[in-house]
């Protein structure tokens, strides 16, 4: 199985617009993703730096404020293919669902990214709900 898919989601007690303001701003990733220390954005390119010091170049594929969807690809040779999608769903005036889907080849990379993203979503929830 060369390709793997992982999805994580979290329900957050804030309006969808409030969650999107953070999730849809690619340079603000270090604020809510533990282990990412920097995010440098230049057009549709983003380079994140992990706490280990390892840089990771990415291509921003989608940043749609109407759909509230953010997608990016890792462009480093560590992956054959990768696409991660973050979606913010409106669940009402004070509630939204944020999902993070990661598809990758090799499959194990989906577990690594998707697994860390699950933890990041919990951190995002705590941040937005004022618990962090």
């Amino acid at each position: 199985m060369p390709r793997g898919t992982v999805r994580r989601e979290v329900r957050i007690a804030v309006p969808a617009e409030e969650a999107w303001a953070l999730v849809g701003a690619p340079e603000r990733l270090p604020e809510w993703f533990p282990g990412i220390t920097e995010a440098a954005v230049d057009g549709d390119s983003r380079v994140i730096t992990m706490r280990s010091g390892l840089p990771m170049p990415e291509q921003i594929v989608t940043c749609d404020p109407i759909l509230r969807r953010f997608q990016y690809r890792i462009t480093a040779p560590v992956v054959v293919e990768h696409l991660s999608s973050i979606d913010v769903f409106d669940l009402g005036p004070d509630s939204c669902l944020v999902s993070y889907s990661c598809d990758a080849d090799p499959a194990t990379m989906a577990l690594i990214i998707g697994g860390a993203a699950g933890n990041a979503l919990e951190h995002l929830r705590d941040l937005l709900e004022g618990r962090a």
Partner: peptide, 14 residues
Amino acid sequence: EPFLDPFQRFTENA
């Protein structure tokens, strides 16, 4: 804590 942790989120790796 997990070994495969490039983000070094865990004490064992950091």
